[in-house]
């Protein structure tokens, strides 16, 4: 069963400074910003971008869609896993679909989805498709791992089904759900932005990355990449904080 890790795995400030220094040194040694822009230049460019309205509207555009895809995937994954755990035939039906979704490369999905969906909503569908199997698989594994002795206890005490689900299954599945969200949050940003770079929806972060490539503007490319990392990290932290609060509430009942 996945356990929450505490302590020692956090990133230390000195290591960040070390790698920034390596990056700066590498950039200075190369002497060509187009090949490797310096962290100072990236920070300067990021500061310039951050005071422009298109910067924030692009973030809003991509954040709204990628987060929506993620949330839909979480809800759909939980519902399908619960139904799959309850009905064996449904599980048999869903399993190959999930395996297929997992195996198909993002690029293939993007091209397929573009046939059906306008490019502005591409990242919703792609982040949904990438996160869905992760949530589904983890939740169903969590349900399967529910302690049979506890389930037997609920039978003897004749606990109503809803109470058994809430206190036994939810409590036991939460660590799996947390792990799925943690993995899914990282994946949805990677896949969502990659999809935007291919589909180039107007006003998205992906479009900005694509333009950076076209105009060989390495400073912009790095500045936007840093932005994606910051948003993805912040989004994950906020979402996981909410999950932990939920876990805490259940534990304190």
């Amino acid at each position: 069963m996945p356990e929450r890790k505490k302590g020692k795995t956090g990133i230390r400030l000195w290591t960040v400074l070390f790698w920034l220094a390596v990056w700066q040194a590498g950039s200075m040694a190369l002497g060509q910003a187009i090949l490797l822009v310096s962290p100072v230049a990236v920070a300067r460019r990021l500061a310039e971008l951050a005071i422009t309205a298109p910067f924030w509207s692009s973030i809003g555009f991509s954040l709204l869609r990628i987060a929506s895809g993620f949330l839909i995937a979480v809800v759909a994954g939980v519902v399908l896993a619960a139904a799959g755990a309850r009905f064996r035939r449904l599980r048999e039906l869903i399993s190959p679909a999930m395996l297929t979704i997992k195996a198909i490369p993002v690029a293939s999905f993007v091209i397929l989805v573009l046939v059906w969906v306008p490019s502005k909503n591409l990242s919703v569908v792609i982040s949904l498709l990438i996160v869905l199997p992760v949530v589904y698989t983890n939740i169903i594994d969590g349900i399967d791992a529910a302690d049979p002795k506890l389930l037997e206890m609920t039978r003897v005490f004749e606990l109503p089904a809803l109470r058994a689900v809430r206190y036994i299954y939810v409590s036991q599945v939460l660590p799996y759900f947390r792990a799925a969200c943690s993995v899914g949050l990282g994946l949805c940003w990677k896949a969502g932005v990659a999809a935007e770079v291919i589909g180039i929806p107007k006003g998205s972060i992906g479009e900005k990355l694509y333009e950076s490539k076209i105009f060989l503007n390495t400073a912009d490319l790095f500045a936007w990449t840093a932005t994606i990392v910051i948003i993805s990290y912040s989004f994950e932290k906020i979402f996981m904080l909410l999950i932990d609060k939920l876990v805490g509430r259940i534990e304190r009942m």
């Binding site: 003897v156 005490f157 206190y167 409590s171 036991q172 304190r252 009942m253």
Partner: peptide
């Protein structure tokens, strides 16, 4: 008959408090 049992193992919900474990069967 309504049954109650002390199993040989504790069979408690690990994440729940002692109070919650007890009230689970007698809300």
């Amino acid at each position: 008959l309504r049954k109650s049992v002390v199993f040989q193992e504790d069979r408690l919900c690990e994440n729940l408090s002692a109070t919650a474990n007890i009230r689970l069967v007698c809300p």
